[in-house]
Design a protein around this nucleic acid. Structure first.
Ligand SMILES: [Mn+2]
Ligand SMILES: [Mn+2]
Ligand SMILES: [Zn+2]
Ligand SMILES: [Zn+2]
Lengths: 135, 135
DNA sequence: ATCATATATGTAATGATTACATTTAGGGAA
DNA sequence: TTCCCTAAATGTAATCATTACATATATGAT
């Protein structure tokens, strides 16, 4: 996705497509690696020398508000961000720390006794050793 | 479970059953409400006026090390703790904030393409509205 | 009682995140 | 163009959870 369509995408969601906003969105879109705020800041500061970490936080929270992006925690107390796409699970390798997107069938996780509950969101985190590291 | 069997339980896992340790374990065991460190500290400080928050952290980390307890994050950057029992999911109500333990069948969450991955741990978080709040 | 060691505590540091105040930039209206 | 209003971005300081580390206390053997 190029900057033009990103700008359109943001506009559609009621967000004015400023330069930092476009770059942050593009970063999330191209590198699908569930970055932390620090990751984003450190990588974009070269491209945008005036960028501030506050702006990264503000922008991400704006994207979340607009339901373009969601955040989640793994075991560490540091949020990770990704563009909202189809439902999927996450697998983090305990050796290489890589986070994998795992397709996730639309299974019902609520047993019969809980069918009175309304589920709005589900998150599945798996931890273990990835195929690469097992070789 | 009374203090005696808790003491035994801790001893079995190589942990000397001091008074704070017993009280913290008993707290987790009786109130199964996935407390934060703050919850535990604030509730136990009446019973143990000399308790320090550091001790709560140390004790919980000791329990985790001994695989008696596990911690997890919901959306907020604040860890919650519970005694390790059978595998189960968590449902947090967005209205009353109560956290429910949900029985979880031992389903395989990895599609065929990922069967080379070794899963050591899985966490399932559901968010929505609980039955009580829907009434 | 003395000593060694395990346990508990207190204080300060760290790191992520937010609050808030200030500056900067862009788009009309005069 | 200049002025002005507002949105956007920035900087600084505060907050909160957690850890690091140093000190104090309790326990148990000699
Ligand atoms: Mn993902
Ligand atoms: Mn639970
Ligand atoms: Zn790996
Ligand atoms: Zn509820």
């Amino acid at each position: 996705m190029d900057s033009l369509t990103i700008a359109e995408q943001l506009t559609v969601h009621g967000i004015k497509p400023s330069y930092p906003r476009i770059q942050i969105y593009k970063y999330l879109y191209t590198k699908k690696n569930h970055p932390t705020v620090d990751d984003i800041y450190n990588d974009l500061i070269e491209e945008i020398p005036t960028l501030s970490k506050t702006t990264v936080y503000n922008t991400l929270n704006l994207f979340i508000e607009a339901k373009l992006v969601k955040s989640f925690n793994l075991d560490k107390n540091e949020k990770r961000y990704e563009i909202i796409i189809h439902d999927h699970s996450h697998f983090q390798c305990e050796r290489c720390n890589k986070i994998y997107d795992i397709p996730c069938d639309d299974i019902n996780l609520l047993p019969k006794e809980y069918e009175g509950f309304k589920v709005n969101e589900k998150q599945i985190f798996l931890k273990g050793i990835c195929e690469e590291c097992l070789k």
